[in-house]
Amino acid sequence: MTQPRELPIAGNGDVVLVRQHVRKVAVEVGLSLVDQTKVVTAASELARNALVHAGGGRVRIEIVHNGVRQGLRLAFSDEGPGIPDVQQALTEGWSTGNGLGLGLSGSRRLMDEFELVSEPGEGTVITVTKWAR
């Protein structure tokens, strides 16, 4: 079984590598094709967020268990400026970059669990999980 792995997010090419590795682990966990696609899409949004808003960061990719269920957990962390108003940041269409403001709100809809911890000046950690059905 794939061990937990941490990948850097320092450039556009890294976003592609994160997508590819997440896809590989999603298949291993036994996610359906639709769920694989949702997880890889969310990973792409969150990796780009770390790059655009914090100048980079990293992601920890691991397989988790809950009884007999297997899941895939991704933890994106950065040392960027942090998010002053988390509720606002999770609002659809709200953006400080030049994107569509779908990255956070959309990723939350695509995953089963979503946790965001951030303090201004302290960086941001976003942990998301998808469980195999």
């Binding site: 639709v34 694989q36 696609t37 949702k38 899409t41 569509l100 779908l102 709100s105 959309g106």
Partner: peptide
């Protein structure tokens, strides 16, 4: 467009 991509796009909000 693949079906899984269409489903994901709609859920994403696009």
């Amino acid at each position: 467009m693949r079906p899984a991509v269409a489903i994901t796009l709609v859920e994403l909000g696009l």
